[in-house]
Write a protein that binds this DNA or RNA. Structure first.
Lengths: 242, 242
DNA sequence: CGCGAAGTTGAAAGTTTTCAACGAGGGTGG
DNA sequence: CCACCCTCGTTGAAAACTTTCAACTTCGCG
């Protein structure tokens, strides 16, 4: 981890992309800019470990990160894959609790970080900030809801289809007919872990969807040729029917 | 759904068992008691449906409820199984958003319910209340985290063991050596759905654990004879080893 | 008493995991 | 600059597991 020394205006432009701060009044932004730090992490480095007391809030502004938990048998389960902009473990930080899971950067990353006490001060000064925070937590709860529902899908193909469509839906003010292009937020082995399947199964599933002409895999980026095909997989496990 | 007319003191005693209100100052409790309703739901009845605007907060005080989502293919996935006392969809209510999932009572149940506007008023009057709310959301997030990690477990036996141990750990100020007794919060088919397996698989898994002498199944209640055995399943998929 | 839902059990079918081998890419050191 | 090594990804075949389908039992309730 390295602490960078950016200009104040650079900090400010990063700050405006972070969900929780985006709608803050100018006055708060000024105050926050003064206490923000810009940190750099290398690929594989940890942001925090499960059990540590939360004292700092990291906002991912570039790169990628994953939240994972170590299971009793020693293996790791990825709970969340983050692409910027994203807040990492905001709930634990605000409550001052130990982190319930660990955070590792899947690529070289930059975070905008704040010490806990500064944030608490901010909440107490601005009641609307508390509501924004609650809104963020709601959003995260909602994401987990989606994730658990996805994991409920019977077979690997459905889970992968569901995962890919998640990207198509979220980032799409573009041409509706054009083939959307998705860049995976982490190496495929991590994606597989997140989806609850083995890397081999993910590979086979991609190959299968590629043979069907639904997608085109080019390293870490995937072109969605027939979103319709993927949707049919979710509707019924036989996409050829419709 | 039926609206009951309990005495004010009865309401008050229910209220004190609800997490969010338990630590409220007397003054707030008085105010809340005045606007609380006691509702009765029959088994199978819905508390709310996905997509409806959240206007009322239900706190489960007796019975049981499940939160589920309908998947694209028409099947339902149980996201949460609640035993009293529990808050149902508090985040959606406070944010005034549509419910992201549906709520159905798995047994005849009683809820202590509040209209949204009354709660908003309460938050604005008492800033500490907002923190309690954030704490609740944190707890729920944490639960989801556990749940996703559990679902990551490879085989059905591990998931069931993990599920059972969850009860043992949470409700256990009792004798450490004595066999703990768990009452399932819903019919087995719903438990199976929640665990992401088929009812048949759950049945077989229970039978298997019973043959091993780890548990004793008596209808909806399960006696844990060897918690140690279950823990070993999680440590390594071969409990006989240790 | 009898119906219907819930639960149990068996056997076959279908998926995923596991194990193993191999190829491609990136980074390091000679 | 190239050889080497290690990780990641891919592919095949066998093993393990869960689901599916079907029949049967149990339980609760009208």
């Amino acid at each position: 981890m390295k602490t960078l020394r950016p200009t104040s205006t650079a900090l400010r432009s990063y700050l405006q992309r972070v969900p929780l701060f985006a709608q803050c009044p100018e006055e708060d932004l000024d105050r926050v800019t003064g206490v923000a730090m810009l940190l750099q992490f290398e690929r594989g480095e940890h942001g925090f470990h499960a059990g540590e007391k939360a004292t700092r809030l990291d906002a991912l502004v570039s790169g990628g990160a994953q939240i994972y938990r170590t299971l009793p048998d020693g293996s790791a389960k990825t709970l969340h894959l983050f692409s910027p902009p994203a807040l990492l473990a905001e709930a634990a930080v605000f409550m001052g609790f130990p982190f319930p899971a660990s955070c590792q950067f899947t690529e070289e990353s930059l975070t905008l970080s704040f010490r806990r006490e500064h944030l608490i001060e901010l909440v107490e000064r601005d009641p609307a900030f508390a509501w924004r925070l609650i809104g963020q937590l709601y959003r995260k709860l909602h994401e987990f809801t989606d994730m658990i529902a996805s994991h409920g899908q019977k077979n690997a193909v459905s889970r992968v289809a569901s995962y890919l469509l998640g990207f198509v839906r979220s980032a799409r003010p573009e041409a509706p007919g054009a083939p959307a292009c998705v860049t995976l937020p982490a190496p495929k082995k991590d994606i597989a872990n997140y989806l609850g399947i083995r890397p081999e199964s993910l590979s086979r599933t991609f190959a299968q969807l590629e043979r069907a002409g639904a997608i085109l895999v080019e390293g870490q980026s995937i072109r969605i040729l027939q979103a319709e095909y993927l949707e049919n997989i979710l509707l019924d496990s036989d996409p050829a029917e419709s």
